[in-house]
Computed example of a mutant assay.
Amino acid sequence: IAAIETADLAALSNTQVVGLDSSFVQALTSDQVVALTASQLKVMTSDQLNALDTADLAAITTDKITSLSAAQIGGLNTTQINALITDQIAVLTASQVKGLTTDQLTSLNTDALVALTTLQVDALVATQLNALSSSQISALQTADVAAIDVYQVASLETDFIAGLTTSQVEALTAAQVGKLTTDQFAQLGTDDIQALTTVQMAAVTAAQINSLSPAKIQALETDDLRSLRVTQVSALNTASINALTTSQTQALTTAQIARISNTQLRSLVDAQADDTAIAALFTSAQIGAGTTDSPSLLTATQLSGMSTGDIAALRTD
């Protein structure tokens, strides 16, 4: 078999190729495999393709790799998939990528994952992504993470979210962040929360924030808090309100302060009942934006912490 001229192999009809035994295919040299045309490769059965060794597969040119059907790619064993060179991985079509089994995906090495394009990652479904190991997840490029189909995000397992690096979390689009479930959002680490951009925070829901631990809420940067819509602020539960630090509270805009309910403020006041600085948390402008009932929620001790400017800023209506 090894003595057959490459030109003679390339001249075989598709019907003749389909009729070749797997043992015949297995005996082909890499040069002979390279000589097979795209049309011939396209009609080969799974048994025939599985008979090719890793060197044979790695020798197939990229234009011929793309000619294979999704079923043919999906029929390759994990050893063969792992043997594909990065150039071959990079040219797989969206259909071929979507046809990869979870076993095939988990067999890919770091270089292969890095070679994936944004279009290929966009083609992956949640089941495939959830099969990746933590080391594989962290190997995904930030642009690829941002390319994950937004409609697949909610179906990602919490382990996948927990496996994202801080840089990858920062690369998520606002639409992706907004689709995270509360369980997924709670998986973000303190560094991840701190890395969220103002654009991402604007897409965050109150329910997502309410799913965070006090330590994670305190990790939110003041600019991120200021980017919250007033409807988001008014929907924060008392646990989230209580977790805010002094600097975070002072960073809230007057519009946000105006939407804090008496229940929310009472919770904040009760948590710091003996703190004379509680009134000073609010600037004169913020106190002026509050409701007329707000001062009555403060204790005498806390009221003593108000400056004359704060008192002058209170509404009289």
Score class of each variant (00 low, 15 high):
residue 10 A to Y: 11
residue 56 D to F: 02
residue 281 L to W: 11
residue 119 L to W: 06
residue 276 T to N: 09
residue 179 K to T: 03
residue 27 A to H: 08
residue 88 Q to A: 09
residue 39 S to K: 08
residue 306 M to L: 15
residue 97 V to I: 14
residue 49 L to H: 12
residue 258 A to W: 05
residue 276 T to H: 07
residue 247 S to A: 12
residue 216 K to S: 14
residue 242 N to F: 04
residue 199 V to W: 07
residue 268 L to M: 14
residue 57 L to M: 15
residue 117 T to A: 11
residue 170 E to G: 03
residue 157 E to N: 15
residue 170 E to L: 07
residue 144 D to F: 09
residue 18 V to M: 12
residue 244 L to P: 01
residue 206 A to T: 06
residue 149 D to L: 11
residue 174 A to M: 15
residue 21 D to Y: 14
residue 302 Q to S: 02
residue 92 L to P: 06
residue 87 D to A: 15
residue 25 V to D: 02
residue 243 A to Y: 08
residue 259 R to E: 15
residue 27 A to R: 08
residue 269 V to N: 13
residue 183 D to P: 01
residue 28 L to E: 05
residue 17 V to S: 03
residue 184 Q to K: 12
residue 268 L to G: 13
residue 82 N to T: 00
residue 137 I to N: 03
residue 226 R to V: 04
residue 196 L to S: 03
residue 220 L to G: 00
residue 301 T to D: 11
residue 100 L to H: 07
residue 214 P to F: 13
residue 199 V to G: 08
residue 129 L to E: 06
residue 64 K to N: 08
residue 126 A to F: 14
residue 163 G to M: 12
residue 153 V to S: 01
residue 3 A to Q: 08
residue 217 I to V: 11
residue 300 A to V: 01
residue 121 V to N: 00
residue 201 M to K: 05
residue 59 A to D: 13
residue 85 I to W: 05
